[in-house]
Amino acid sequence: MNAFRLAGDMTHLLSIILLLHKIRAMKSCAGISLRTQELYVIVFVTRYVDLSMKYYSFYNSIMKIVFLGTSISIVWYMRYHKVVKQTYNKDVDTFRHIFLILPCFVLALLINRAFTVIEVLWTFSLYLEAVAILPQLVLLQRSRNIDNLTGNYVFLLGAYRAFYLLNWIYRFFIENHQVRWIPWLSGLLQTAIYADFFYYYIKSWKNREKLKLPA
């Protein structure tokens, strides 16, 4: 495993730790999109169906279990925890899941490397992950106050795929891996979707101002 891949996994893990900290310690999920969190559960469940069938490494299996467990528990807190659920911005988190799930599923049926259940689900998870942040970004745009934790959470989540892009470049040139258009292009799209957010995040950080996205 190269340093970019590790950095990607660690920023991803850190983003989840940050969100869980906000939920568990602050008892708040204000500014967090339940829609996006539910999409991540679908992403992990469909991508990690191979967990029981194929063993890559201890690291790999543990991380998969952590991503599955934490994403499900985040959704549980936001939906059912009696204090946390009251902080959820239900009225502004109105993005419809189906508008993302359905096109991604159809695309996965049409464009995949092999028409098998595992392969189609894996491809679907990559397409869905690329766009899963959209409800969260819409929610941020509608929020007047974006707290630091939420801003940092979204930033780390975006940085994770950017590191993966570097990892793929490294693997292709240094480790002579194959061309993998499906993860590469969806990863590129995923990172590009954050471009606007990155711009305002870095700007607010440089000017020591509170993060605010223009409507």
Binding site: R5, D9, D50, K54, Y56, N60, F67, A114, Y164, N167
Partner: peptide, 10 residues
């Protein structure tokens, strides 16, 4: 088989 790149990423 070499058609599949192993899915060893997360």
């Amino acid at each position: 088989e070499c058609f599949y790149e192993p899915k060893d990423e997360l």
